[in-house]
Design a protein around this nucleic acid. Structure first.
Lengths: 245, 245
DNA sequence: CCGGAGGGTTTCATTGAGTGAAAAGCATTG
DNA sequence: CAATGCTTTTCACTCAATGAAACCCTCCGG
């Protein structure tokens, strides 16, 4: 019950894609940033005490306490009898709402059948990923049914740099109608994991990526080719089915 | 594509159950509250422009702009080409994480089979609800398979006051082992909707409620009794199965 | 081609809201 | 019961958030 580990450090606090603002640029909202940081650490770590959360977010405990209280009052967090904070009902409400409408809901819906098919055809776990700044986030999956399989990456974020998903998500929107190319990589995040990835297009560019993830020694030769073909096929059909919703 | 309506107004901003603080009590974090309010309105409304969101949250546009920018930089929101804000990848990441761990994840997992069984036995939609301040939030469902059925309340919040869920969630934790009582109500939120609800217990008290919701004219006589019995049965078995996880 | 309306964005002087060091509580533990 | 570790309260200082006003768009209708 102490998850940890699933959390990759957030990107540079300014968020601007790529230019050197003097780091503490013009008047941002400090308390607000900190509150969000606390919300993030508490939720992605599953549960945290005041001191843990404060340390993780780099905030003095007295200040962190005030912020955590605010979040608790609003129902975004709850405090259990042992004093540990974790997700609250109000956050769950919003989280659920974010899946019903909003751009990602559409994408997830459009990708669902494709993920299913990928898992069946390749026998490996299939994931849907989207870009988040300089990272990629896995937002949906259909797992392989093998005993040895890739699991638990939904909600995880990985760097774009040096990963297959990253390359796919950054690939220039090849004119619509042109088949995208699959990207293949082994061991970028974890050794012995091979990723076969293809981008999902839309008129405005790349909006997501489909990944097939599995043990490196299994995704080779014939099976690698099957995966490569399947991923590209499904990416194309997902792109079109997303277009007409 | 303009959902609206699903949003019930939040409770009193200070969150303290029931006492008249002088409204601008001791040093809470204004900007943080506003940022959270904006996040909430934007996400629960699906998509909103600067002016809409600012108006809805009661904030001057210049300030709202700064806050929305912060949220966008962090990836919690995105801005589409038409200038409308909606959920961003970073928020989705956290939202997903909140389902994997955290207290509600456990509850949802424990309740899933029960919801399934309720939907089968009663032929109506079954929901799981939890308390959020002075409201109840529906956080999971298994829908009826009838043509006419109750749908779309996941993520919705309703007042505790005067509703069946409310009564169930507020019911005193009758000593463990004692069968809970079902609460039945018609038309509290929408006319022609009947709710049959029973509380889910844990040692510390009531932690959630199971609701069977359907058209009032269908849930009567024999079928009402079936629903009442089923809801209580399933609530009890969910309570125990939640206890030993 | 112009004018005006309805967004969005920037500026900047003002001040009160957020800050955090320190001290005081409150459990747990040896 | 002294020691340790976590939480909570206090309070004086000041920097960070604020919002009215001015500016800048783009989109319309005349």
């Amino acid at each position: 019950m102490k998850p940890s580990g699933l959390r990759s450090d957030r990107m540079a606090p300014d968020g601007a894609p790529s230019d050197g603002e003097p780091s503490s640029a013009l008047h941002k909202s400090r308390s607000a940033e900190r509150v969000l940081a606390l919300l993030d650490t508490v939720i992605t770590s599953g549960a945290a005490t005041l001191t843990d959360a404060a340390a993780e977010a780099g905030i003095p405990t007295s200040t962190a306490l005030r912020h955590l209280r605010l979040l608790t009052n609003r129902g975004y967090l709850v405090r259990d009898d042992r004093g540990r904070y974790s997700v609250g009902p109000a956050f769950v409400r919003i989280a659920l709402a974010s899946f019903q409408w909003g751009p990602y809901a559409r994408l997830m819906a459009a990708a669902q059948p494709g993920l299913q098919r990928l898992a069946e055809v390749t026998g490996e776990s299939a994931y849907l990923a989207v870009r988040d700044g300089q990272e990629a986030v896995y937002i949906a999956t259909v797992e392989s049914r093998r005993a040895i399989r890739h699991v638990g990456w939904v909600g995880k974020s990985v760097p774009l740099e040096g990963t297959a998903v990253g390359e796919a998500l950054l690939s220039e929107a090849s004119a619509l109608g042109v088949r995208p190319k699959a990207v293949i990589n082994t061991g970028a995040i974890e050794p012995d994991v091979t990723a076969v990835v293809a981008p999902i297009h839309e008129s405005s560019g790349v909006i997501g990526a489909l990944s097939v993830l599995g043990p490196a020694e299994r995704i080779v030769g014939r099976r690698l080719e099957v995966a490569r073909a399947a991923v590209v096929d499904v990416a194309v059909s997902t792109s079109t089915s997303f277009g007409r919703v």
